[in-house]
Simulated scan of single mutants.
Amino acid sequence: MNQITSIITSSAMSILVVLTGIVVQAIKKYLLMRGGKKAIEIVEILAKNAVNATEQVADKLDIHGKDKLEHAKTSLIEGLESQNIHLTNQELNTFIEAAVKKANDEWKK
């Protein structure tokens, strides 16, 4: 009888450990997904701010074309570093180009 109780107890503990591992993985995946969405929203806001700020100081700094892109990219990188977000150069360009397009579309309206 004691052996059966021992087997049942150890089996129940094993099942609980497996279930706990599954729940932890699900929670971790959910939090990463949620944090990823938040990070994208932060990047979009910072890219918009970097583009707008660059447009405002472009005449004073006498920068045009690629220099404006580099200035906006530098501003965006500084903002992202303060939020502990790191992107590739291509991703930075993509977010800046999207912010420029959105600003141009709003200006045309």
Rank of each mutant, 00 (worst) to 15 (best):
M1V: 12
N2C: 08
N2Q: 09
N2V: 05
Q3N: 10
I4S: 02
T5A: 11
T5N: 14
T5H: 10
S6E: 15
S6I: 07
S6D: 14
I8A: 15
I8G: 00
T9K: 13
T9S: 09
S11L: 09
A12N: 06
A12Q: 08
A12V: 05
A12W: 04
M13E: 13
S14H: 06
S14A: 15
I15C: 09
I15Q: 02
I15M: 07
L16Q: 01
L16I: 07
V17F: 14
V18N: 01
L19P: 01
L19N: 07
T20G: 09
T20I: 13
G21Y: 03
G21S: 00
G21C: 04
G21N: 06
I22G: 04
V23G: 03
V23A: 13
V23R: 11
Q25S: 03
Q25H: 00
A26Y: 09
I27S: 10
I27R: 13
I27H: 05
I27F: 10
K28I: 04
K28D: 03
K28W: 00
L31V: 02
L31H: 02
L31I: 06
L32E: 07
L32I: 09
M33W: 07
G35F: 05
G35Y: 06
G35N: 14
G36Y: 08
K37Y: 04
K38G: 06
K38T: 13
K38L: 10
A39K: 10
E41N: 14
E41K: 15
E41H: 14
I45R: 12
I45V: 15
I45K: 11
L46K: 08
L46H: 05
A47F: 00
A47E: 06
K48E: 15
K48I: 04
N49A: 10
A50H: 07
A50K: 05
V51S: 01
N52G: 01
T54D: 01
T54P: 01
T54N: 04
E55M: 06
E55L: 12
Q56N: 07
Q56Y: 08
V57I: 15
V57T: 11
A58Y: 08
A58I: 08
A58V: 00
D59P: 03
D59V: 04
K60C: 06
H64A: 10
H64G: 02
H64I: 09
G65Q: 08
K66R: 08
D67W: 03
D67P: 02
K68N: 05
K68W: 03
K68I: 03
E70G: 01
E70P: 01
H71Q: 13
H71C: 10
H71G: 00
H71E: 15
A72I: 04
T74Y: 02
S75N: 13
L76H: 01
L76A: 05
L76M: 11
L80M: 10
L80A: 07
E81A: 10
S82K: 15
S82G: 07
S82P: 05
N84G: 02
N84C: 01
H86T: 12
H86M: 09
T88S: 15
T88M: 09
Q90L: 14
Q90A: 15
Q90T: 14
E91H: 06
E91P: 03
L92T: 06
T94R: 11
I96T: 05
I96N: 04
E97W: 02
A99Q: 05
V100Q: 07
K102G: 05
A103K: 08
N104T: 09
N104R: 13
D105V: 09
D105G: 04
D105H: 02
E106F: 01
W107K: 12
K108T: 11
K109Q: 04
K109Y: 11
K109A: 08
K109D: 05
